[in-house]
């Protein structure tokens, strides 16, 4: 289980997150929704250790976050486009490999390559293993990014607006994949989303943020209109 407690983040004078508490159980896909600037991505970055916090703690299964516990799937995907799909997925395991076994892709072991192939198979792209990552469509690249996250062997996956650059069909595929990973692999998955309809179809629970505070924590079909009211937008801007 991922537990975020009392997360408080400040950008200079502006407090972006106010003592936010969020939990994600194993086997659960939690969607975080809210208007632009409400602090969704900041919350995810704080959970991933990419954003310094003023206060708060992040624990995984009751213990402090380990360096490999949490994998992140980014909005802009961030694959190395010139490398093969397989090499990109193998790179997800770098954190647990000694330098001498990982300085160049040629040093990756057969076991690691086979594990990466299994991750690729999990996202339905095993047949593209030797293609350059840059030759894949946006949706396929995001699925490779998910495979890279799996190769890290995490207990938690954080996805920062993973479908914002994808067409509707690819968005459905990626969200369905994240939900399946949560349910089948028993991972705790937290996804920041902009589309309430996608969250309603795929998430197990939604959390709504407004002005850096949790204002909604409920089932996926909850009414989220209040999160996008103009008052909230004005307060943020």
């Amino acid at each position: 289980m991922l537990t975020l407690s009392d997360i408080t983040v400040r950008y200079g004078e502006r407090q972006v997150l106010h003592r936010v508490d969020v939990t994600v159980a194993r086997g659960e896909l939690l969607a975080v929704l809210g208007a632009n600037g409400c602090g969704k991505s900041t919350l995810l970055r704080a959970a991933a250790g990419l954003q310094p916090m003023e206060e708060g703690s992040v624990t995984v299964d009751g213990k402090g976050r380990g360096p490999l516990d949490i994998a992140v799937v980014f909005q802009h995907i961030h694959l190395v486009r010139r490398r093969t799909v397989l090499d990109n997925v193998c790179a997800g395991a770098l954190g647990r490999l000694p330098l001498r076994a990982s300085l160049v892709p040629a040093l990756f072991s057969r076991e690691l390559r086979e594990e990466a192939m299994a991750c690729l198979d999990r996202v339905g792209l095993a047949d593209r293993a030797h293609d350059r990552a840059g030759s894949l469509s946006g949706g396929q690249q995001q699925r490779v990014a998910v495979a890279r996250a799996l190769c890290q062997r995490p207990r938690v996956v954080l996805a920062d607006e993973p479908v914002s650059a994808l067409d509707p069909a690819a968005s459905e595929q990626v969200l369905a994949l994240l939900a399946e990973l949560a349910h089948v692999e028993q991972l705790a998955v937290l996804a920041v989303l902009h589309q309430p309809s996608l969250a309603a179809r795929h998430a197990d629970r939604i959390v709504g943020l407004r002005d850096g505070r949790v204002v909604l924590d409920g089932p996926p079909h909850s009414n989220v209109d209040s999160l996008y009211q103009p008052a909230a937008m004005e307060a943020v801007s």
Partner: peptide
């Protein structure tokens, strides 16, 4: 900086990040 950030968040060290994200990105 995206690919490097992705690998650093996956626990890769400084040299690993340079070898697997930064250098392949700027090779051209």
């Amino acid at each position: 900086p995206g690919p490097s950030q992705a690998l650093r968040s996956a626990g890769a060290g400084r040299i690993q990040t340079a070898a697997h994200a930064l250098l392949p990105t700027v090779t051209p």
